[in-house]
Design a protein around this nucleic acid. Sequence first.
RNA 1: GUGAAUGUAGCUCAGUUGGUUAGAGCAUCAGAUUGUGAUUCUGAGGGUCGCGGGUUCGAGUCCCGUCUUUCACCCCA
Length: 456
Amino acid sequence: MDKPTLPKGTRDFGPAQMAKRQFIFASIRSIFQKFGFLPLETPAMENLSTLTGKYGEEGDQLLFKILNSGDFLKDVPADKLVARDSRSITFDIAEKGLRYDLTVPFARYVVMNRHEITFPFKRYQIQPVWRADRPQKGRYREFYQCDADVVGTDSLFCEVEIILMIREAFAALGITDYSIKINHRGVLGGLADLAGAGDQQTSLFVAIDKLDKIGEEKVKEELVARGFSPNSLTPVFQLLNAQGTTADKLALLDGTFSQSAAGQKGIAELRQMLDLLRAYGASEDHVEFDVALARGLSYYTGCIFEVKIHNVAIGSVCGGGRYDNLTAVFDGKEKSSGVGISFGIDRIYDAMEELQLFPARTQISTKVLIAHFDAASHSYGLGVLRALREAGIASEIYPDESKLKKQLEYADRKLIPYTIVIGPDEVRTGQLTLKVMGTGEQQALPITDIIHRVRA
RNA sequence: GUGAAUGUAGCUCAGUUGGUUAGAGCAUCAGAUUGUGAUUCUGAGGGUCGCGGGUUCGAGUCCCGUCUUUCACCCCA
């Protein structure tokens, strides 16, 4: 029999990794709750029709499809089978798919439950998503997203709260060196107007988004190859290269975008957002206005966010933005504005591991192990175990009768900080041997004293 | 989807122009120690060299295919 393996791009998480992952989940969850977001879970699989067409053509290719049960070839037209065109029979043999992100299922949920939902609706969702991408560093086929979205309000204070939550989360995780890049689709629209991009807007955005990665010259080359004239790009790069504070940059854009309605709207909203941040009493720490930031082009319409941790070779660890018409794809009459953020915890984990930011002691589960010599001391130990647990102390007894060496080794490996050794002497006197594994120090104490000591 | 690298013990890796029975460190197990882990000493077990085919008297080593992992592109968390 072949050795078992995992599907490409998936991972097991052992106890040591789970301790760290749960630390991240718990930190982020408590912040979402503090900001008034309510939990939601949706199924791992959705109808394929719910997922397709929401992520662009490339996104559709990255969807995992689920083969129909039973005789799945039964209803496939014969000519399609003869043609052997896999793509054309996909929808005949697969009517379900695994979710690709949490935002689209959320939009589906909102449309289906709009009469029960109190708007503005703030929900958070922490679940895995699947993408049939080629795996590489920081990219997996199964990974978790931690999303918080607000739907049903245009208030820019939602954007402010996103910034506040990101900062709180990173502070809780001990990540200090990072930047929250912000931009606005309107600003991008202004750049497109400036360059006379016409229907080539997307090409322009995709290219300038790579600016910090491949540099100005390569971006220009790419754009010229796509039909942009070098002259039209000059004013665009003047703006992209602007230095100074966020206010300085906004002032510069304000002058340049005088003829662009989109650009003016972007500037106004970014300014208002910063005003609200100030009114809340918060700083602009970590916030960086980046005119070149372009992302989530298929549905973001307002502010856009991306978080990068410095000094690690890992892509963005958070992304988000505002979408004016997400629910519209499920119901044309419904136009609910939403804004949200997604934490990519697998990447945050990788970054924290690389930066050695995890607290050393995340793994401890059991606090006390009871070790014993024979059937009589094991039996006596059961009463001690009950007393410990009733006192709320995480504890366990070594299940088998075996050498003390083996029992202490078990405690050592499990990073259990205390052991209680019980033999004939302890059973007779009631004075139990408490051993502190870290120092090797041990002393004879009655169980009540041990409980007091271990709790402290 | 495009391009490139990688794969030898549980883990990290050696392995000579292709030449006897494929090695090391760590880990595991046992003993030194029948009331004491993490440190010490002694010993033992563990490999179809990713898989399939080819070249050769002979392949861990060369060639082809395939899978895995990794890196870059595309895109993204």
